[in-house]
């Protein structure tokens, strides 16, 4: 990994911590996963101009893609709150100690669980 990449990863850590903290999230305790995802985001920023989520698909439409810039929690809040993690798992709820215990719930499953109530 280049020095530039590492430096940018550190900047992301600082900036994104500021955003996620008031939302009740923290970086995942799975540091290996966090390092991998942040590196992907640095590479995505270099290639596409923004640190997009490494696990969600871009369409090229600004309105859609801007909602996938990390941290994208504000635009998917209820869905992510239900999983106690964001889609890629970079962030988890502050009370989560064991991120491997969390499962990804698809958008459709989440919507279905909501209408059941």
């Amino acid at each position: 990994m280049s020095v530039d990449t590492e430096k940018r990863m550190e900047q992301f850590r600082t900036m994104f911590q500021r955003v996620i903290d008031p939302l009740g999230y923290k970086f995942s305790p799975d540091t290996e996963l966090v390092d991998f995802l942040l590196e992907q985001e640095v590479l995505l920023e270099k290639e596409k101009g923004n640190p997009y989520c490494p696990c969600q698909g871009l369409t090229g439409e600004r309105e859609h893609d801007m909602q996938l810039v990390c941290p994208c929690i504000p635009f998917h809040r209820e869905h992510f709150d239900a999983m106690k993690r964001c889609w890629c798992g970079l962030y988890v709820h502050k009370d989560v100690d064991d991120p491997d215990s969390l499962v990804q719930i698809s958008k459709k499953e989440f919507e279905a669980s909501r209408t059941k109530v």
Partner: peptide
């Protein structure tokens, strides 16, 4: 306030 998450 940030309109999508007023805590920010």
């Amino acid at each position: 306030e940030f309109l999508n998450a007023r805590e920010i």
